[in-house]
Write a protein that binds this DNA or RNA. Structure first.
Lengths: 202, 202
DNA sequence: GTCTATAAAGAGATAGAC
DNA sequence: GTCTATCTCTTTATAGAC
């Protein structure tokens, strides 16, 4: 089982908490939050059912920790790409490549991030909704810039939604056995998106 | 509550079964399959908890009925569009417009179709997996035809995945309050996809 | 075919020893 | 901080009257 996932929460200092989160990621992603029991999580982490409650106040708190961490990572990716060097087309290519690649590499985490928001406690849902709005705003602003400067030709709102949809939906169908791998998939999707934005037509 | 949803299962003859399915759609889509109780469903349908079991052998059978019906509809849409008149570009425009529009109009059903497959009984999961394969194959064949005849220029596999992703992901974010409406969204997405396939560049 | 009542199992969370 | 044992509530599904 994945050191990849176990290492996916470097911000969580306690080793036991990280192990629990890694176990939760597997089960939440494969079976869904509600279909996962606290026993599933603690057992997979090699602990007794009660041990979970030493590190998290509730099952929902485990979900929140995973979801918040993932949403922050996704926002950081698009912000870094949008603030990078080059033309809007250059930056867009990086943004899609990295975002798509992250969703493929961390498809289990991404699945929880994208599809389990209704199970979040209200306060965390609010935080997550804000992170999502900011993510979408960054993408829209970059496309807007490209349209304004004449390098893109498309409907900004729809194109921004479509761009994020392409990346996000990877979490739904991608598995460890999928081809091409994350990096190559990212490249191909970046090319598709640039064409979609009308970047090739001038 | 939606006559739209209640009328979404014309193949189900028994009125009580249709009412139960419509109620289940609302709750499955809003809260998820596992977070929905059989009481939620029967109560919303105006019945006692036991009444559900007169019409369905289990809670999972209600899910299967919804999921199978939705998957069959989605396949029918792409098949009809792909078999229609006109160039590959013409047919692709219709395919995306109708597929996107359906996912927007029936976003609750689509959400269940796309995100609750792990909760299906094994036999139904197999059926659904086959319907999905056939759907993807139709889209890929149409893009392939376009590339072969020189009207599209793109990587066929990635483009087919991306095209379906755009349509499918609508189920995740679309609400009754979303703008533009289903028909207009379908048109805009069709334009985006044709650009993505390289149809405008010649 | 619909109801009330309930059986049977499962699941989140806690108590208290070590 | 981890364990065993258990409490309490919820949930799927069934029994049997009308």
């Amino acid at each position: 089982m994945s050191e990849l996932v176990a290492g996916a929460f470097p911000d969580v200092t306690a080793a036991a908490a990280r192990r629990l989160m890694a176990a939760a990621v597997e089960s939440f992603a494969d079976n869904g939050y509600h279909a996962t029991t606290t026993r599933d999580i603690s057992t997979a982490a090699g602990m007794s059912p009660a041990a979970l409650y030493v590190h998290f106040p509730s099952k929902a708190a485990v979900l929140s920790a995973i979801s918040l961490s993932g949403h922050e990572r996704a926002l950081a990716i698009v912000e870094a790409a949008a603030a990078g060097p080059g033309t809007p087309a250059d930056r867009m290519r990086v943004l899609v490549a990295e975002m798509a690649s992250w969703h493929a590499t961390h498809h289990r985490i991404a699945r929880i991030v994208q599809y389990e928001i209704t199970a979040l406690p209200k306060a965390d849902y609010t935080t997550v909704a804000d992170l999502r709005r900011r993510t979408e705003r960054v993408v829209r602003a970059l496309i807007e810039e490209g349209v304004t400067t004449g390098v893109f030709a498309c409907d900004v709102r729809s194109a921004a939604r479509a761009t994020l949809s392409l990346c996000v939906d990877i979490a739904r169908w991608y598995t460890a056995a999928s081809t091409p791998g994350p990096a190559e998939l990212g490249k191909r999707y970046a090319t598709l998106v640039l064409a979609m934005l009308g970047a090739g037509s001038r």
